[in-house]
Amino acid sequence: MNKLLNSMFALAVASVTAVSVHAQEIKGDAKAGEQKIAMCIGCHSIHGYKSSFPEVYSVPKISGQNGKYIVASLNAYKKGERKHPTMRGIADTLTEQDMADLGAYYEQHGNIQPVTKTPKAPDAKVAALLQKGACLSCHGDNFSKPIDPSYPKLAGQHKDFLFVALKSYKVENQSTWGRNNGVMGGIAKQFTNAELKAISAYIASLDGEMKVIPQSRFR
């Protein structure tokens, strides 16, 4: 199993590197991105805001997230690799420059300082689950330093969102729900939903760099 996971990670890194090289051709402009956030702030800039599809869960924190990951996510929605109708509809309206600008804006939004605290150690059960999934191999120390900027920071993200996101990699052949990603699909399918919930709760409990920053109109 470890050899299989290592092979999957090697393939994933190679694929992400190719995407990153392409993304580097389009430089994001945070100032321009600030003028393009109208479709984002109605969900991602309200404390406690929840999505109701396909179940009720907190929309993710994106202020302080890696800009290239935001670009990769939007592209995945646009291509149908992530199947959420609302996000697909939004992503369809964006050009590659728009995505790069939005990524640049949210990466620096709030000037969030890097985490310097020693991470809380997981209990033995969760530690075994994290080792089984080799989660730190991609998402890095304290789940805040991914090995490539096209991977997400996870520490401090909403636990209910993390749980729904992980479950979505187990879903196949649905037109409006699920995520197509061979690496994450292979990892998520190793776990029961109860185990994914335990992993999500631990990662959410860590100090992270992401937060929800309300726009003035929502304060």
Rank of each mutant, 00 (worst) to 15 (best):
H84P: 13
H84Y: 11
H84V: 12
H84G: 13
H84D: 15
H84T: 10
P85T: 14
P85I: 15
P85G: 14
P85F: 14
P85R: 14
P85V: 15
T86E: 10
T86Q: 12
M87R: 07
M87G: 08
M87E: 13
R88I: 06
R88N: 07
R88S: 08
R88E: 10
G89E: 11
G89A: 14
G89Y: 10
G89T: 07
I90D: 08
A91Y: 00
A91S: 04
A91N: 03
A91I: 03
A91P: 01
A91Q: 04
D92W: 13
D92F: 05
D92N: 14
D92C: 01
D92H: 06
D92E: 13
D92I: 04
T93W: 07
T93V: 12
T93C: 09
T93F: 10
L94C: 04
L94E: 00
L94G: 00
L94Y: 04
L94A: 02
T95K: 01
T95W: 03
T95N: 08
E96N: 09
E96V: 05
E96T: 07
E96C: 03
E96W: 05
E96I: 03
E96S: 12
Q97M: 06
Q97P: 12
Q97F: 06
Q97T: 04
Q97Y: 08
D98V: 00
D98S: 02
D98L: 03
D98W: 01
D98R: 03
D98G: 04
D98Y: 01
D98A: 00
D98C: 01
M99E: 05
M99V: 07
M99G: 07
M99T: 01
M99A: 08
A100Q: 05
A100R: 09
A100H: 05
A100Y: 06
A100T: 02
A100P: 04
D101Q: 10
D101V: 02
L102C: 00
L102M: 07
L102Y: 03
L102N: 02
G103F: 05
G103L: 09
G103M: 08
A104W: 05
A104L: 03
A104H: 06
A104C: 06
Y105M: 14
Y106A: 02
Y106F: 13
Y106T: 02
E107T: 02
E107F: 03
E107M: 05
E107Y: 02
E107S: 04
E107H: 06
E107I: 02
E107V: 06
E107A: 10
Q108S: 09
Q108H: 04
Q108C: 06
H109M: 08
H109V: 00
H109W: 09
H109N: 03
G110C: 12
N111I: 02
N111M: 02
N111V: 08
N111W: 01
N111E: 10
N111S: 12
N111D: 12
I112F: 05
I112L: 11
I112N: 13
I112E: 03
I112K: 10
Q113D: 15
Q113M: 14
Q113N: 14
Q113A: 15
Q113Y: 12
Q113P: 00
P114T: 14
P114D: 10
P114Y: 11
P114L: 14
P114M: 09
V115A: 14
